[in-house]
């Protein structure tokens, strides 16, 4: 060897201008990384503070009886919001049952059958438009379409309003989920002699299911917290609902009603209802994730 490296300084060239630049670049790199981490924490501040506030204010009144008792009349203490919790579950479930099948099927059509067709383009455009529509408009629509026609406020009308709200979210996330399934799977299926129907329902849809469920859960989470569409459609009720065709209580409308009351107990109850709503949404999310991420072998 002509020129043996004897010192680390020779090897790394510590004093060369390149080395100085490298140090300042790595410093810049670290600063930016730090900034990103810092801002990520900052973004979590509103979320965490809301959660803390809801837990702190909602926890004192939280016990089993809130799920079994009816809302207290104005100025009274005790009671719960069992009917509102059931009402929310009923109407979100109803909305999901109405929205998910057509939304997923429409997504299959625009993704698998005729992605570049005029109908697909129209459906995609309308769905995007619908996601931006204020939820109160969904309420007004369901009011006109169901409440006026049937002549009464009802859980069905509330369900329809929530379905209109959920439909575009589910459709668009389902389309993305289907697009996310690699084409190699479709080719494998067609290559083995499968029809399009078999390819979609045996290969593409199962592959997209976890991502579709994420979209569904997003829609559910949003719908569960909506107040405006329900005020127009399901109204509220102090009693247990005995059918789907009568005014029905919901957690969101209860929170809206109670939080504006001048009575301390009702305000506290609104906090507790908020906590229950948050827990309900979280629970459904976690359950869905667990169930559908384990489905693939």
């Amino acid at each position: 060897m002509d020129n043996p490296v004897t010192h680390a300084a020779d090897f790394f060239g510590d004093n060369s201008p390149d080395a100085t630049k490298a140090i300042s670049r790595s410093l810049g790199n670290r600063l930016l990384t730090g900034l990103c981490i810092g801002l990520s924490f900052l973004a979590m501040v509103p979320l965490v503070s809301i959660l803390c506030l809801v837990v702190k204010n909602g926890l004192p009144l939280l016990d089993w009886s809130v799920f079994t008792e009816l809302p207290p009349a104005a100025g009274m203490t005790g009671g719960g919001f069992g009917n509102a919790a059931v009402g929310t579950l009923t109407m979100v479930g109803l909305g999901l049952a109405l929205a998910a099948p057509p939304a997923v099927l429409a997504a299959i059509y625009i993704c698998e059958y005729d992605p570049r067709g005029r109908l697909a383009g129209t459906v995609r455009f309308v769905a995007k438009l619908l996601t931006g529509i204020p939820s109160i408009i969904c309420g007004v629509f369901a009011f006109a379409a169901v409440v006026v026609v049937t002549g009464k406020f009802s859980a069905v009308a509330g369900g329809v309003a929530l379905a209109v709200l959920m439909l575009p979210t589910i459709l668009l996330t389902a389309e993305q989920a289907l697009l996310g399934v690699q084409n190699t799977y479709r080719e494998a299926s067609y290559g083995l002699g499968a029809t399009r129907f078999q390819t979609v329902f045996r290969v593409v849809l199962p592959g997209a299911l976890p991502a579709i469920m994420t979209g569904v859960m997003l829609a559910v989470a949003r719908a569960a917290g909506e107040t405006a569409p329900l005020v127009f459609t399901a109204l509220f009720s102090q009693f247990w609902a005995s059918s789907l065709m009568e005014p029905t209580a919901s957690l969101s409308v209860l929170i809206y009603n109670f939080s504006t009351m001048p009575f301390e107990h009702q305000v506290k109850m609104a906090w507790t209802a908020s906590l229950v709503l948050v827990l309900l949404v979280t629970l459904t999310n976690v359950t869905a994730q667990l169930v559908f991420s384990r489905r693939s072998p």
Binding site: T184, Y185, E187, A188, S189, G207, P297
Partner: peptide, 9 residues
């Protein structure tokens, strides 16, 4: 195919 593509089954 070029890229092996077994189904998630």
């Amino acid at each position: 195919f070029q890229k092996s593509n077994p189904f998630a089954k």
